[in-house]
């Protein structure tokens, strides 16, 4: 190589560039250290603090946190009242996930298979905007809708279906005084708020279903229903599972929605919030917060086996 092909060194910037070129690891280290420090110290550190707190206990007389290792706090989770909270939360998460999948599937399928050009953009924005738009505003909107004097009661009465609404509200266990103070109401709001999180991964996996397979299926004499059951659904399953991770996890950790719309029966998130706040029992709050983490770890490992991560 001739000497003239190399430009003269123009100072520090050039020398650093040369160093980064010869030793790419130095640059990598420089790039990744600040974000890793932040996430490692602030986030992982906090998660560690959560675990630590959950092994502490509270002195029942003085209300002071006893900083000694104990499993007593975890033992309290198994009290009947606390088990109720956990089971109620799991039931809600499962039913919200199921409903999101059923309502979301046609939207995802249509967006993936039939929406073209402008409609594709309409569907994309139509799913993205509700996903990103203000969570609290969405919950508030449902407070207005479900109120006893609100639009649903009005609509039901004006088409003469008021008796149907009353019948639904009279259902034991899930009904209530009005929709905004019933489990059905809580469930509806959950479905509404988390639905886009279900649609997006389903759409992603449906877009990867080759049209040729659907054609082959119908060439072989399958009806639409058979094609759906034995071709489309199995291929879309990873997307459904991926979406279910979001809906399940988000429902399990939420405490705003059941606080605003629903009965006084508590969910895990509410228990955590009340215990750390008014009750001042941070150890039990921390132990409660560990429950969703454990459930999600199990859920994620099952989902991984179902191939959900290929669809993300």
């Amino acid at each position: 190589m001739s000497r003239s092909a190399i430009l003269p060194n123009r100072g520090l910037a050039d020398r650093l560039s040369a160093l980064f070129w010869r030793r790419p690891r130095v640059l990598l280290l420089l790039l990744i250290t600040p974000p890793l420090l932040w996430l490692g110290v602030v986030y992982l550190g906090s998660l560690g603090a959560l675990l630590l707190q959950s092994f502490y206990s509270i002195d029942e007389f003085s209300g002071v946190v006893v900083e000694e290792f104990t499993l007593k706090t975890y033992g309290e989770l198994f009290r009947a009242a606390n088990m109720d909270i956990i089971l109620r939360t799991l039931t809600m998460s499962a039913s919200v996930t199921l409903a999101s999948a059923v309502i979301g599937f046609p939207v995802a399928y249509f967006a993936a298979r039939f929406a073209r050009g402008r409609w594709k953009a309409v569907f994309y924005l139509g799913i993205m905007l509700p996903l990103w738009s203000s969570y609290l505003v969405k919950v508030y909107a449902w407070k207005l809708i479900l109120a006893k004097e609100g639009i649903i009661t009005w609509a039901a009465d004006s088409v003469g279906l008021g008796f149907l609404l009353d019948a639904v509200l009279a259902l034991p266990g899930v009904g209530g005084n009005s929709l905004s103070t019933s489990f059905i109401g809580t469930w509806l709001v959950f479905v509404y708020v988390w639905l886009p999180y279900m649609i997006l991964p389903m759409q992603a996996s449906l877009e990867r279903v080759p049209v040729s397979m659907l054609e082959a299926s119908s060439d072989l004499g399958a009806t639409r229903g058979q094609t759906f059951r034995s071709v489309i659904l199995p291929l879309a399953m990873p997307g459904v599972i991926a979406g279910s991770i979001f809906t399940f996890s988000l429902t399990m950790g939420d405490y705003i929605i059941p606080q605003i719309v629903g009965t006084s029966a508590r969910f895990i998130g509410q228990a955590v919030y009340q215990l750390q706040g008014t009750a001042g029992n941070i150890p039990l709050a921390a132990a409660f917060a560990v429950v969703p983490i454990l459930i999600m770890l199990v859920y994620l490992s099952l989902a991984k086996r179902g191939g959900a991560f290929d669809a993300l």
Binding site: L36, V42, Y43, L50, S249, G253, A286, A289
Partner: peptide
């Protein structure tokens, strides 16, 4: 590690920071 803060429910992130 990057995805975890939004993959886990917000109540966990919040409670973790509160504990710390």
């Amino acid at each position: 590690l990057i995805i975890l803060p939004i993959a886990l429910p917000g109540v966990i992130t919040g409670m973790s920071l509160r504990s710390a």
